[in-house]
Design a protein around this nucleic acid. Structure first.
Lengths: 134, 134
DNA sequence: CGGTATCCTAGGCGATACTG
DNA sequence: CAGTATCGCCTAGGATACCG
């Protein structure tokens, strides 16, 4: 689609323009800082999973298969410290803990949606690279 | 801005809807695969730097201060294998090597622009978290 | 069920030194 | 200047076992 292509090019030029103002991408750069905090597979997958709504620990564990309980827990604690998610404990036996996004966490919907779109759009290519473990 | 808030909420709902279709975020999920390949600080910073245009190795080295030459090189090789960047060698002494984005690499402008926007919008908060090394 | 603690390994990453 | 090789640290992250 022509309009789509034009829009993409506009996005590219806009990004290029924004980045021109950032001659250095060192620690003082806010993008650098964001990436330091968030550029992690498990971290982003947990946030994504919670975009669907409130979930229990075990649900997250099952949905994001591949994470060990330990790493999942560390990731959740980190996200709580960041203020991106809430943790709610119900006084029951057996215990019941639910996680949900904060407003701050929900604000990640924009970048995550863009990533999801990109992934779907380039699905074949990404899968090819992934399989070849390049 | 009201319109802005509405748009953000729409993005959230849209993402939520898209994700509902993905009950499992395991290795077979394309988002999982994308994140496995790209969710890395240096990887994304290099791509971002190249959004500004073609650059020499040393330029990247200086601009993304904090990377060691070794890691920078490994990252560049990885990105070449992914087909995201080009490498051009000039037959000169001393050698001159330039890197640039491929079309595929340029397609990352959308998610990266969204991330940049998010970073700038939440700059204070991100910086606060970053400083406290949470 | 949710979380912690302990142990242990693979690999990310820095430092240094060397080739073309 | 660009890249490789070697060494070595150190932490992300898996496995297991144990408390509330």
């Amino acid at each position: 689609m022509e309009a789509e292509a034009i829009k993409k090019n506009e996005n590219f030029l806009k990004l290029k323009q924004s980045l021109i103002l950032k001659p250095v991408l060192d620690e003082s750069c806010i993008v650098h800082q964001s990436l330091t905090l968030l550029a992690n597979k498990w971290t982003l997958l947990v946030v994504m999973a919670l975009m669907q709504g409130t979930k229990r620990t075990n649900e997250l564990q099952k949905q994001i298969s591949g994470v060990s309980p330990k790493v999942l827990n560390e990731t959740l604690k980190k996200l709580i410290n960041y203020g991106l998610i809430n943790r709610k404990v119900y006084p029951e036996v057996p215990p019941r803990v639910e996680y949900s996004l904060t407003e701050f966490g929900i604000s990640l919907a924009d970048p995550l949606a863009a990533l999801l779109d990109w992934s779907v759009e380039h699905e074949n290519r990404v899968n090819e690279i992934y399989k070849n473990k390049l």
